[in-house]
Design a protein around this nucleic acid. Structure first.
Lengths: 204, 204, 204, 204
DNA sequence: TATGAATGAGCCTTCATTCAT
DNA sequence: GATGAATGAAGGCTCATTCAT
């Protein structure tokens, strides 16, 4: 039922979307919408939270999953003896790349959700705070990922994480409007663009 | 008078903002708003256009201005003998840096405008198209800037420009919420982060 | 519910009548009016059409009904052998008289409707056309009635029909303001006034 | 200046006509309209009164003017010896015919005024009363004209006068929409239609 | 339980009308 | 005296939200 709501919100926008419309799209009747999810505002927040949670989870899962094909052995051997700085950097790069792949993959597969999340809710008070919180979680995750191998530059890392997330969002928007683009290619592009700078900042 | 409108739209959002409220903030009465700027929708578009135009102009002016203090000598000597690829790259870097400084400076000085422009209008049909057009102009300007010194990789440059603009926007959002941050420092941060990757992509 | 609308429109006029007022008169609330009959304009047109249709139908029915008490025998004998011109004229006279009786009867019984129909809507664009069409139907019906027994003077008959309808309307207005007047007497008056001229024009 | 107002009212209707529009059409500025003629309502009433007065005057003048070409000798000789009933009837017929000619002539020459007078103001409270009064004057004039030669049937004459005026109005409306029709022909048509009945009613 | 029907509240928009120049 | 500029007041229309069935 949230699916229907997300679809309608995505297509028409929060204000233009009528509750009638959502109810009809969900195949139920209006009072049911209120019974199940309360106010239109609460309904929208519910959509928001679900989409954001799923997205974040997908990214975190991918990033944290057992080191797979490409970085597998290195990670394993490194794990035994404590990773050197270089090895840690390679690991972070690989995690970031996997996270981005998951990110673009998710966005490509859930266009409606992304539109609701990022294009509708962002500036609309009372949702902006909600979105900001979700976004903050993502930024922090990225910051942690980047900060682990690095030394003490944590303060400098937060803005970088913001920039990285912003760049990702921008490309996600671009991907939403270019459905043929492959998520892995997009992730590769962004990595090529960003990693050199990240690496230099992390180990000056 | 647009100033008042921008302020109200920024604080309350397009839909929540009442025309009464805007009129009151502008110190005039409601019918005057309609007399001067037409419909609420037209009023919003007018705000949008003004902010976007000013922002774009500020960035373009800064980017294109006579090579100033920092890059002065290099640019001058390069101008005499025709710039080598390396020198052109240096020029582009300098232009980009100046553009970013102007960008963050403008955003910091026009917080309300930025919020309206990027946070409100982006997902709200019928304004999304307007914003998309402005943004596209910005992306193209960046793409041209980057493409000049580079060879034939123009196709790869567009997504990069998107990412760069996105990263800039994200940091702008961050700046908006951290008023103490100096625009030049922010620009420097973003340059440090992005330029190595840009340089590598441009001249692999 | 149209009844309430007709009453209010009749009392206050189209523009002076507020939708709130109509809703209150109908015992429902404003949004219901919009839900059931759409725009205020559409509501007015609906009133118009209903009143006009009823009136027209009443007149046509009365005029076309089986020759009743007064003209019964004549009609019956004429029916057998084919009516002579004189007999056809008598039939037309009788039909016209019955039509007028029905007309004045209806107007007397639906004062509000008549006021809306003829006094409000006539000059008020965008309704004038609607009323003109209804009126044209009435004029044509009269013209056909008169033309049947007559020979080829059809062109001269249209203005006569207009005049007849106009005279009828004028007396209807008069009837509306003189509730004690009996419809049959009014019809008799008008017949006495008009028929001699009609008969002379029809058979010079 | 009333001319401009009449033209605008005729074209747009009372409510649709803006005071700005009228002022512009008159070549002066809005506050002047208020200075000269007061409220919009008063302005409309002024138009109304002027048109109605002119029309009534034109009809009365024509009806009362020295017996002209056609009825000249008869009227003159009748005047000497006291008119017989028949001669009085002939005089009334002639006066009525002249009145009708003037009426249709005036309407044809002042279409705008007629539209304002009869099509707009009729049902629109607060003007209906004004129009009704004017109309009543016309009806009375006709009734007096008809009653003079007749005996004591004054009560029966009023409704007849109403019907006659109504028929005239209807043909006037028809004339307004058929500009090629000659006023004298129209008057002749109406006389042919009505006079036989009138004559019969007057002298049963 | 699920719904058709109903509504209170509010927003955009428009004029007739009047000052300050 | 004439006007450009300003406004108070009101009306049409919509929609989130809730009863009675």
């Amino acid at each position: 039922m949230l699916d229907a709501a997300v679809a309608v919100f995505s297509r028409r926008g929060y204000h233009a979307a009528g509750v009638d419309e959502i109810a009809e799209a969900a195949g139920i009747s209006k009072p049911m919408v209120y019974a199940y999810l309360g106010t239109k505002e609460e309904l929208f927040v519910a959509c928001l939270r679900r989409e954001a949670t799923r997205l974040l989870q997908a990214v975190l899962d991918a990033s944290a999953e057992e080191a797979g094909a490409s970085a597998g052995e290195a990670g394993a051997s490194a794990g035994e003896a404590g990773a050197s700085a270089g090895e840690a950097g390679v690991l972070a790069e690989e995690q970031l790349r996997r996270g981005l792949r998951a990110f673009f993959g998710f966005v490509g597969a859930h266009r409606d959700g992304w539109r609701v999340l990022c294009r509708q809710a962002r500036g609309q008070e009372p949702f902006a705070a909600e979105v900001a919180a979700m976004r903050q979680r993502m930024v922090e995750a990225v910051a942690v990922l980047l900060a682990r191998p690095a030394g003490a530059h944590a303060d400098d890392i937060t803005p970088i994480a913001h920039a990285l997330v912003g760049a990702g969002e921008a490309m996600a928007d671009w991907v939403v409007d270019h459905p043929t683009e492959d998520p892995d290619v997009t992730a590769g592009r962004l990595m090529n663009l960003m990693w050199p700078g990240i690496a230099r900042v992390l180990r000056p």
